[in-house]
Design a protein around this nucleic acid. Sequence first.
DNA 1: ATGTCAAATAATATCGATATTCTTGGAGAT
DNA 2: ATCTCCAAGAATATCGATATTATTTGACAT
Lengths: 221, 221
Amino acid sequence: MDAILDTEGKETSATHGAYRRLREMILTGELPPGQKLKIEQLRKLLNTGASPVREALSLLTSDMLVERIDQRGFKAAPVSKCNFEEILLLRCNLEETALRASIVNADATWEDRLVLRHHHMKRAGQNGSHDFEDAHKAFHLALLDNSKLPLLLRYCSQLYDLNIRYRYLAAGGSSYKKRNIAAEHQLIMDAAFDRDADAATRHLIDHYCRTGEYLSSQMGS
Amino acid sequence: MDAILDTEGKETSATHGAYRRLREMILTGELPPGQKLKIEQLRKLLNTGASPVREALSLLTSDMLVERIDQRGFKAAPVSKCNFEEILLLRCNLEETALRASIVNADATWEDRLVLRHHHMKRAGQNGSHDFEDAHKAFHLALLDNSKLPLLLRYCSQLYDLNIRYRYLAAGGSSYKKRNIAAEHQLIMDAAFDRDADAATRHLIDHYCRTGEYLSSQMGS
DNA sequence: ATGTCAAATAATATCGATATTCTTGGAGAT
DNA sequence: ATCTCCAAGAATATCGATATTATTTGACAT
């Protein structure tokens, strides 16, 4: 049930299918923050039983995308400027740690993975928002996953998702792209290839803080 | 279902009760790492239905105390030296961030809470292991919770629990106490009272690294 | 003897229904 | 008019049973 990487679109179990679908709906804002999530309602919507829905919601609780109110059901996690700023803070902290560790372990296969992810992201970026978001996440996680620190990666992945939610909520998920994101990614990757941890982390954090400022300015709702 | 603070021993729902009990059993090693967790078996042990057990296990998955194998049930999370070292690394990183933020927000009510927790810990330390562990965690989280960063606190609490598990596994949970732990706690707290963030974090990290070295030396199994 | 396949067994995942629990709306009292 | 309390309604939490899926056992062929 890890959110780090989906090996394939195997919707084997009903629980897993419900998990993926609900996750998507919360991330994109289709289920707005703070909304009550009624079992019966979701059961019909997802065309499945109550047990898989309950279990999927329990799983999403761990991802901090759903809150459980004891004896009173579930609701989509609320949003706030405060929460957003904490996410940004933690991401900067944790991703710096992960990126530095990745660079320490740098080798040719890692570079290959990065080049590939970067290429996929550029391709996907041309058409639409959804594929791009997936590729964007894959690229960023590829930057970090050479750290070989699974717990840290899990946290980074979780925080990434919490953050992307704000992007969708603020601007439909793609309008921030007017900035030259591609160039920023290139800078990070090049620094990683040079094994220049300081430069790489600086560019990465810049990347996040700029997006952060943009989103912060859009907030208020 | 937060693990940060249990307001009271309200075992309102069967799910929550199963969660608490299973969590306890995994932390203390009563359910050993890697062990298959069969629903039927736990259902009888906890004297409840299958649904609460399943849901409790889902919740524990978020805490990284249980692993889910798709379509093949659950098992207690495995342990490894690698995992232990990552936990230590992340704790040092995250708790430093949290403690510094706590000190920035320092005020009289925080000091009061600390004094109280410290006192409770000293009292509990005299009799036995279990009460002491609870008080010890409460003290450490009290050091951090003035940061007012709920996500960060959640991670710290999670990592604390993952770590305590190694303590129980390595030494039955209390033998490391021969070191003068009380003095180390006093140092951290005093530095916090002095608003000396550098000294406080130094003492805190020392505290963890010493315990870490001790446990590392005990590992191998 | 060994490897492979199929049936039997055991466990999980899911469903439908019931018992609890919370919420809402209204009647009565102050 | 406002507050409190009670009853009706809605939603959750839980149970017991079934269908689905993995694992093991044993027979057969090589």
